[in-house]
């Protein structure tokens, strides 16, 4: 199984923010969820992967090619947070435009998908709701039969019904051999539902990229007094937060080991949301 995206040591510097040596992979057949707080570096990472911005360091390969080589992007479908066609255009015009740009554009598929999504082909994009615009973007991304979908906050701002529809499409897409998805979102429940791996970016650094099931199975939150948590070995603790309303809490790599060490402590399974809160809180403490 090869990697559709392979990022090594990616560095991008802006004034006041640095994306610092990020390593990230998207293997074939998997959905990688990229999580992080607002401004953590998710969009910057995605832009670098797509060749929209020039990295200051590191290497990026998209299906084995440098994304600066636009041919590398022939088999990549992209969905950004909002529509990128002028609002006065309609889906029919988008179809005609992209059929003249993408060699493998499948007009029939695009129109079929638009119909399935209930999109009026003649209605100006500016009159679409946000959900409809996202569906149009997704139809656009899928119509050239991509092997890789890259989506930046594709489900944010959508109601649960539309989000569910879109997540189902991702799960269907990934059934095809050799396909993969990189999906950035801060709606972590979506990722818990569809992602195979979770990559967490925090303040410009990738804290981890791990198999989601293993992550949620093994990682746990230990709650108790600060003195109790002091008894946990340092290499077991990923992050610790002291002095909150519920006392102290520590995110640990191995919940079972923590239970053995601290039989009196409360050891809970964790969620991605809670992990983010604990990591986020680390900097406030």
């Amino acid at each position: 199984m090869s990697d559709l995206i392979a990022v090594q040591g990616l560095v991008k510097r802006y004034s006041g923010f640095t994306l610092d040596r990020v390593d990230l992979t998207v293997p074939e057949g998997e959905i990688v969820g990229l999580i992080g707080e607002n401004g953590a570096g998710k969009t910057t990472t995605i832009k670098a992967v797509l060749g929209v911005i020039r990295p200051d360091g590191g290497s990026i390969r998209v299906m084995g090619k440098d994304p600066k080589d636009r041919a590398a992007l022939e088999k990549v479908g992209v969905v950004f947070e909002d529509s990128y066609f002028y609002g006065g255009l309609n889906a029919h015009q988008v179809d005609r435009i992209l059929s003249g740009i993408r060699r493998d554009w499948d007009s029939d598929k695009f129109q079929r998908d638009c119909r399935a999504f209930g999109l009026d082909m003649k209605k100006p994009i500016k009159d679409f709701s946000r959900g409809m615009r996202m569906k149009l973007s997704l139809s656009t991304a899928m119509a050239s039969h991509p092997r890789l979908l890259v989506m930046d906050e594709a489900t944010s701002g959508l109601d649960p019904v539309v989000r569910g529809e879109i997540l189902d499409i991702f799960l269907t897409f990934i059934q095809d051999e050799g396909c993969g998805i990189l999906l950035s979102s801060h709606i972590t429940t979506d990722l818990e539902r569809v992602a195979d791996q979770i990559a967490y970016i925090h303040q410009g650094r990738l804290l981890f990229q791990r198999n989601k099931d293993e992550l949620l199975e093994e990682t746990a939150v230990v709650r108790g007094s600060a003195s109790m948590l002091d008894r946990l070995p340092k290499d077991l603790v990923l992050v610790r937060r002291d002095g909150g309303l519920g006392g102290s809490a520590a995110l640990v790599k191995d919940g079972a080991a923590a239970r053995r060490l601290l039989p009196d402590a409360v050891v809970d399974r964790t969620s991605i949301d809670e992990m983010m809160q604990l990591y986020g809180g680390r900097d406030e403490a």
Binding site: F80, S83, Y84, F85, Y86, I101, V150
Partner: peptide, 18 residues
């Protein structure tokens, strides 16, 4: 200005055009 208003430039970079 149409391009600036809808973020076309960013999207165009992801298309197989130079």
């Amino acid at each position: 200005s149409l391009d600036e208003s809808c973020g076309w430039g960013r999207y165009a970079r992801t298309l197989p055009v130079n």
